[in-house]
Each structure stands twice: as C-alpha cells, then as structure tokens.
C-alpha cells in the first residue's frame, strides 16, 4: 500500500518545528506502523535526508518507549494498542496520515517525535515506591494478600509509563499514570506504611512539573494502551484528601 505522511520535524527543543510531507511506498499490510516508518527512513537516508527521529525499543507493547500521535490519537487509537503493535492493515490505500509527538508542557520535544518524559521519573522518585532495603525481609509467604487485592494491584501495576494519558488529556494531566502507581502500592499491605506520605509527595511533584488536573473527561482511559481504569484516580483523590487533612491536623 501507499500512504502520504505529514510528519512533525523539529531539530531540538529551541528550534521551531513544522510538518514535512513524505510518501510511504509499497508498504506491506502486515508491517507495523513503526516498521512502515523504518522503511520510509531507509529511503530518506538513501537520499541523504536525515531520518525521522522517533523512539521505540521492545516493539512488543511493554516497554512504553514508543510515543506518537497519529491523526490526533495517541498510539493511533486502536483499543489497548501501543503504536509498535499498530498494524498497517488498519489504514487505507492512499490515506494521508498526520504524525505528531506527545504535546504537553511537561514533555518538551527533544527532536521530531521524541519527547523528554523525565518528569514521570521524578514523580516516581518523589514517593512511588515502598522503602525497603535489600536483605532482611520476611519470608514471602509471611504476609498473605487477598487474591482480589493482588489482582487490583496488578491491574494498576501494568502501566507502562508511556505518557499517552497526558497526550490525550486537554489539561495535560498525569493523574492516570500517578494514580496507577499509587493504586498498585495501596492495594497491598506492604504499601500501607507510607500511603499518606506517598500521596502527598507524588501529587506535589506532579503539580510542580506542570501537569494539569483531572476534569473527568476520561480521554486518558480511552487512550491507555493498558486500559487502566480512571477508578484509580478517584482512589488517589481520596488518599490525597485524607493525607492533606491529617497533615493539616498535625496527625501525620
């Protein structure tokens, strides 16, 4: 199949960017979207033009590296699919496809379709963990966890940290990402000791990075390649409210 691509090109964070038009020729419908870009890039290099810069690594939907908005939808809009697993059979012959980076203030563009998502790392560093040293831990079976809680923790822990939730959100909110980590840890007994402290620290880091707040549009849930539920945001809000109240009362 043949397509026309309108791709965002931007040399670095400081330079202005613009759309360039490229032709994708003789693409197999079995190829993934990123493999289609590989073919286009090989062609560009042969012509002495620098390739379209985009990030990808595992190409099996788990590392969370790939990140691009296709025709206005993060990861291309197929349910539960990262762009590395989006296949060309979903496109039409002759289609014009627009490709852009994640657009959000806390994700500055590095080059073309690559953005800097280190703000996500800093949110985790603020408190997205259980403080435990290596060694000296009790036997793994010393602490039973009800299966339904373990399953709810796992549903949230599946987050791949790609940032599609932010790209989809009109407020550029990182709350689905942040609440998934809090939900993962707060459904487990090991996560209780730091639950309040974690809620305060992560939310404050999130806000200081320039992410917006949730106004219940649920675009994030629709865009999430791991289909993480917005119910975790509600749970996070409750944790944060309780922790703030305790902090104000000087209980914690």
């Amino acid at each position: 199949m043949n397509l026309t691509l309108k791709v965002w090109r931007q040399k670095d964070a400081k330079s202005p960017g613009k759309f360039e038009t490229y032709e994708a020729r003789n693409i197999s419908t079995h190829a993934s979207f990123l493999e289609m870009l590989d073919v286009v890039n090989e062609d560009l290099i042969s012509k002495g033009i620098e390739p379209i810069h985009f990030e990808s690594d595992c190409r099996e939907g788990i590392c969370g590296t790939c990140s691009m908005v296709i025709d206005g939808l993060p990861h291309g809009g197929q349910p539960g699919t990262t762009v590395c697993q989006l296949h060309m059979r979903y496109f039409q012959e002759g289609q014009v496809v627009t490709i852009e980076p994640w657009r959000a203030k806390p994700f500055p563009v590095v080059r073309d379709l690559i953005v800097d998502r280190s703000s996500f790392d800093r949110i985790i560093q603020a408190g997205g963990y259980i403080s435990v040293r290596t060694g000296g831990t009790p036997d793994a079976n010393a602490l039973p966890v009800p299966k339904q809680n373990a399953d709810l923790a796992m549903d949230a822990a599946q987050c791949i940290g790609c940032g599609a939730c932010v790209a989809a959100c009109r407020n550029a909110s990182g709350m689905l990402f942040m609440s998934a980590k809090m939900g993962h840890l707060s459904y487990l007994p090991q996560g209780q000791a730091e639950r309040s402290r974690r809620a305060l620290a992560m939310v404050r880091q999130h806000d200081s990075e320039g992410f917006g707040n949730c106004t219940n549009q649920y675009e994030c849930e629709a865009a999430c390649p791991k289909e993480i539920s917005v119910a975790y945001i509600a749970r996070m809000n409750r944790d944060y409210a309780l922790a703030s109240a305790k902090e104000m009362a000087g209980v914690e």
């Binding site: 259980i130 831990t137 009790p138 793994a140 602490l143 039973p144 966890v145 923790a153 993962h184």
Partner: peptide
C-alpha cells in the same frame, strides 16, 4: 525481597 517491594505476584 520482591514481595517486600510490592511486586504483585500471582496468589
């Protein structure tokens, strides 16, 4: 170690 960190193993 992993359980103490909160790794959600199957139960």
């Amino acid at each position: 170690q992993c359980v103490a960190q909160g790794v959600p193993f199957a139960r």
